[in-house]
Amino acid sequence: MRLRKIKEFIGFGIVRLATIIILLALFAILYFIVIRGIKVVNWQFLSQMPHSGMTAGGILPAILGTFYLTMCAICFAFPLGVAAAIYLTEYAKQGKLIRIIRIGVSNLAGVPSVVFGLFGLAVFVKFFGFGISILSGGLTLGILILPTIIRSSEEALLLVPHSFRWASLALGASKWQTIFKVVLPNAVSGMLTGSILGIGRAAGETAPILFTAAAFYTTKLPCSIFNEVQALPYHIYALMTEGVHPKAQVPIAYGTALVLIFLVLGINCIAIIMRNRFRRRQKW
């Protein structure tokens, strides 16, 4: 009896320890970057252009670049993804074909992001001739998050009880009226949550923009969507691996990492809090 108790104690102790190790890893990363980054980040750092060959100045172009890329991605992927989800759940006959499409979409969510980068290079940069630009990078990121948006929108739509649809149809509402006035208002929060998570993902990805949008050093801000841009995640990578003054570049990388982490985790936090709120509020 005693032995069994000890075993239980040790067993659950190990489980606790493992969890603590994981959380420690998270804290280590955050702590390290915050402590070193905070020394660099100030208003000038956020609002100035870089100068002296990337060894001094701010990261404004990278912040703006990430913003443009992300906006471009979400403007492309949100309407397309939501429309696809509406079609797949509300209109399409639920047969084999739709099931294959669903499996395909969910599998694409697991394809490595660098593969999406290759696709963007072959299609947007070369085939459509957009060159290395905000447009190419944004579209590539858009396609990267498209499966996520389709899936989360579908889940949101499927969560709306069928009885709502029936009630609406039985009142003489057409299919579209039912979707627009009953289904979508009740699904929109879930769709938004999914999309915000998508934004967070797009903002933090590097591999897809490596050869579709990113530039290490630009002296001026982009003025059209056909310009190449700096972006926060790529900036970190470039500062650590390129350039000629590694010593001077590392502190800037800390600052950039802090800004990026703050941005991405902030976006994720918003999405998670939103999701938990909506879950609690839902009564049906």
């Binding site: 009880p161 709502f164 029936w166 009630a167 039985a170 009564k283 049906w284």
Partner: peptide
């Protein structure tokens, strides 16, 4: 039509 389980919209 009125359904078995009441289904008011939220």
């Amino acid at each position: 039509m009125v359904f078995q389980k009441s289904n008011p919209f939220p």
